[in-house]
């Protein structure tokens, strides 16, 4: 009986210690939420060619992503200027990280919808969406970019964090 209780108590402490270590590890890999949104959005825009996109408003963000712009601290959103365009840029600063799962899923669905739209119809756009889509969620900062030089946009975004 006594040894069983000691084993159970040890398991309890071990599990608690592991959980704390794991949270510390997660925290260590998260960027500082105090970085101004302007810094991050400028970093992303500086590498993104805006000639094929147009700025999106609240209604368009809701329509294309199912997201409400009032839920976030910062929103920068450009969507294709024509029906045959696939370039897109979305930079968000979340109000808190609990929103990241919903945002991540919304981005995945948007990407999937776009791919489905161009599959077997617009080979160039489909390739762009398949090979040149960048999604980064770091702490409260989110980047979704579809463009030829998505790597440069990604790097610029990450460097700003």
């Amino acid at each position: 009986m006594k040894s069983k209780l000691i084993a159970l108590e040890a398991l309890r402490w071990l599990a608690a210690a592991l959980a704390v270590l794991f949270i510390l590890f997660l925290l260590g890999s998260t960027p500082d939420p105090a970085i101004p949104f302007e810094t991050v959005e400028q970093a992303a825009v500086s590498q993104f060619d805006l000639s094929d996109v147009q700025p999106g408003d609240t209604a368009m963000l809701r329509r294309l992503y199912g997201l409400s712009s009032t839920d976030y601290e910062g929103v920068l959103f450009y969507y294709p200027a024509s029906n045959m365009g696939a370039d897109e840029l979305l930079v968000l600063k979340l109000a808190d990280e609990s929103q990241s799962a919903a945002v991540s899923e919304a981005i995945s669905k948007r990407l999937e919808t776009q791919r489905d739209s161009f599959d077997g119809y617009g080979a160039e756009q489909f390739a762009l969406l398949t090979d040149h889509a960048a999604v980064e969620i770091r702490g409260v900062y989110v980047l979704f970019a579809v463009c030829e030089n998505e790597q440069a946009v990604r790097e610029s975004f990450l460097n700003a964090l």
């Binding site: 009986m1 069983k4 209780l5 159970l8 108590e9 398991l11 309890r12 071990l14 599990a15 608690a16 592991l18 959980a19 794991f22 949270i23 997660l26 990241s100 799962a101 991540s104 899923e105």
Partner: peptide, 29 residues
């Protein structure tokens, strides 16, 4: 959506399972 939290869930399950068994055994004694 967040596979990394599986570690956290497993820790929580182990912690609470042990606590439940411990409370039950102590109460029975």
């Amino acid at each position: 959506g967040t596979p990394e939290y599986l570690v956290l869930m497993l820790c929580s399950l182990a912690f609470n399972y042990a606590a439940g068994r411990e409370i039950s055994a102590l109460r029975a004694s």
